[in-house]
């Protein structure tokens, strides 16, 4: 066994970690706290830890401003992106993991370059093209665009999960008379669930967190929650409007906190997958 740490180092260690956890969580904690306060209490001098609670900002944002509609849009778009992205991503990931030719290598390298592209570059082309084609401001358009932008990352990650499934499994199924599609659907996919959940989480996050593309391709009744936040961002002039922004931001955050709570293990394995397994 390795020797125990000296007490002084242990203390330094704990202080550092305490400090980090505080820094990591405080901005969100404070945002939550002030979202339930009247503007005067939220920006009081000196700052207060306790103040009367009010739900009026949430009421205004969700009911009066119609945030529920944007929440619905976000649900449709994230679920749509998730489904399409995983379906075509699994097919491609499986193909890339089982094919030996150099073509697979080139697809992966080009995908890596695509992954590095700033999204605004494609947006410059999308704007005039979608306008001319008349597919502006539609769910399907945003979904397929998010799927495409997400694909390079998705196929890299799914491929690395498929590589971990031994090829003997394919061989056995093929010998038993399955064709490739049957092998894929009946033999490989049932043992792929951890990989699908992990990759799915990241596809979900990309679609849910996207601001740039969503705010530019959708408008009016079709806006997503994250894009709708921009209505409140540049409103320093009115404290009430700013408080609505805080309530909106808190509403966006809550589902993500549950996501991390329930899927922490998968998120960690997803973040580390590409790196540790090579």
């Amino acid at each position: 066994m390795l020797k125990q740490m000296p007490t002084s180092l242990k203390m330094a260690n704990r202080t550092f970690l305490f400090f980090w956890v505080f820094l990591a969580a405080f901005p969100f904690f404070w945002m939550f706290l002030i979202s339930f306060r009247s503007p005067v209490d939220a920006f009081s001098f000196p700052p207060k830890l306790f103040a009367p609670v009010t739900l009026e900002h949430f009421y205004t944002v969700w009911i009066v401003d119609g945030f529920w509609r944007q929440a619905l849009n976000t649900t449709v778009i994230t679920l749509g992106t998730l489904t399409v992205s995983l379906t075509i991503g699994c097919l491609a990931g499986y193909g890339l993991s089982r094919y030996r030719g150099s073509m697979g290598f080139w697809i992966l390298i080009i995908a890596l370059v695509f992954r590095a592209m700033p999204h605004v570059v494609m947006l410059v082309a999308y704007k005039p093209a979608f306008w001319a084609m008349g597919i502006w401001n539609r769910y399907e358009t945003l979904i397929i665009v998010l799927v495409a932008i997400n694909q390079p990352f998705t196929i890299w990650m799914l491929r690395s999960f498929f590589v971990n499934i031994p090829e003997e499994l394919d061989q056995a199924a093929l010998v038993d008379g399955c064709n490739r599609v049957q092998t894929f659907v009946k033999v490989i996919m049932p043992v792929m669930w951890p990989g699908v959940i992990t990759t799915g989480l990241f596809s979900f996050l990309l679609a849910y967190n996207d601001f740039l593309i969503s705010s530019q391709l959708m408008s009016g009744d079709h806006m997503t929650m994250t894009a709708a936040l921009s209505n409140y961002i540049f409103s320093d002039d009115s404290l009430a409007k700013l408080m609505h922004g805080v309530a909106g931001a808190v509403s966006i955050t809550i589902p993500l906190i549950f996501l991390v709570l329930f899927f922490q293990k998968y998120i960690v394995s997803g973040l580390t997958h590409g790196a540790v397994k090579g």
Binding site: T253, L261, Q264, I267
Partner: peptide, 13 residues
């Protein structure tokens, strides 16, 4: 868990 929050939560938020 606490460490993941800044990385996972929407960058605009």
């Amino acid at each position: 868990f606490a460490s993941l929050l800044p990385h996972i939560i929407t960058p605009v938020v």
